[in-house]
Design a protein around this nucleic acid. Structure first.
Lengths: 198, 198
DNA sequence: ACCTAGTAAGTGAGCAATCACATACTTAAG
DNA sequence: CTTAAGTATGTGATTGCTCACTTACTAGGT
């Protein structure tokens, strides 16, 4: 069947993400992606000049989805601590709906000899970290975060938590709710950071 | 030059780990590993029947090194909190001396269709987690860990910290001292967990 | 008529694994 | 102590396979 290029590209990107989750990013071949979409392998190269460009499109898509989720988290909440909770929740939600995300971020496979892609993903991580630091700093001046912990260090603890939970979920046959468990542990960490004993 | 099989195997394992770090585990070909050792590609199959068996030997080596490091951490310290510090420090040290470790542990590439290897690495993670939980539980009965945090949850926070720092170090061109920064952030987290304000 | 999305059939490169053969060590007999 | 047989480690060439990417050609939409 013939479809518009835009639609096909989106289909391909979705298929690549799905395959990356199931078999690992580096095992995603052009043939496998094409078969998942239902076209010939050669058809892929109508839409992307090289496989590397295809991955860049995937990165673009992921970056867009993350930006939307972060935006929603920021506008839907008041107060720094609530915002941090929402940001972490958004991140966990994105991981659940795009389970290949941790592997894409953490596997060097894709990034070796693909500097653009590497930079794209690193930029995403740093942006998230930056949002968290900003909110924590705001929280500290408002008195809701312990004074003796630097916002940067607290942000490291929180982003590590997301990564740790994601990896645990990814490796461990996904036998628990990432969002549920993540939020539970996040609350523990936030209680430690705010000093509240509620 | 001719060498004993034992020596060669060790050389190959070391070369594989080095290559895995530099180009990514999945890009380690038998040819590349052989070249790194200085023998022909065919020679590899004198020492390992298949490439998969070669990776199992790598896993064995890594597991041995980790076990030694943990053992040293446990016997060299008294008191639960010091032991946790030493265990985390040992883990960070192993990552520095075997930088491919996080990728091996967290990348699904190698593990898909290689269930033995996957099980080997997952077992290592669980063993580490178990050691931490045990020490934290001991610390809690001794009163040095806050009562309201379950040892399992605290262990998740601590192992996540290791993973988060390792990933940050791995992605970020290694432009900081993993051990130095890791221990600094670990101390912050431990202060939060113990409730000590020293 | 003309572009656009598609295809079938390649091409060359890189891969794990095999094979026939070579050369260094080990061991046991004379 | 020498030497011949046997074994352990190594090699170059090759095989069968998969991959990204190309080329020549085709059909649907406007």
């Amino acid at each position: 069947m013939r479809k518009s290029a835009e639609l096909r590209k989106a289909e391909i990107v979705a298929a690549v993400l799905d395959l990356a989750d199931r078999i690992g990013p580096d095992r995603v071949t052009t043939g496998a992606a094409a078969a998942a979409v239902g076209v010939s392998q050669a058809a892929l190269f109508r839409h992307f000049p090289t496989k590397a460009e295809m991955w860049l499109a995937v990165a673009d898509h992921v970056a867009g989805e993350l930006a939307i989720a972060w935006q929603r988290a920021m506008t839907g909440t008041d107060g720094p601590i609530d915002r941090v909770t929402a940001l972490v929740g958004a991140q966990l939600g994105q991981i659940v709906s795009t389970p290949a995300l941790p592997m894409l971020l953490f596997s060097r496979e894709l990034n070796v000899g693909n500097e653009d892609l590497r930079a794209a993903f690193r930029g995403l991580l740093m942006k998230f970290q930056g949002l968290i630091v900003t909110e924590l700093a705001r929280g500290q001046t408002a008195g809701s975060l312990r004074r003796e912990v630097a916002p940067e260090d607290a942000a490291v603890l929180l982003t590590s938590l997301v990564q740790g939970m994601a990896i645990r979920w990814s490796l461990g046959a996904r036998n628990f709710s990432l969002i549920g468990e993540g939020k539970r542990v996040l609350e523990i960490q936030l209680r430690l950071l705010t000093g509240k004993e509620d």
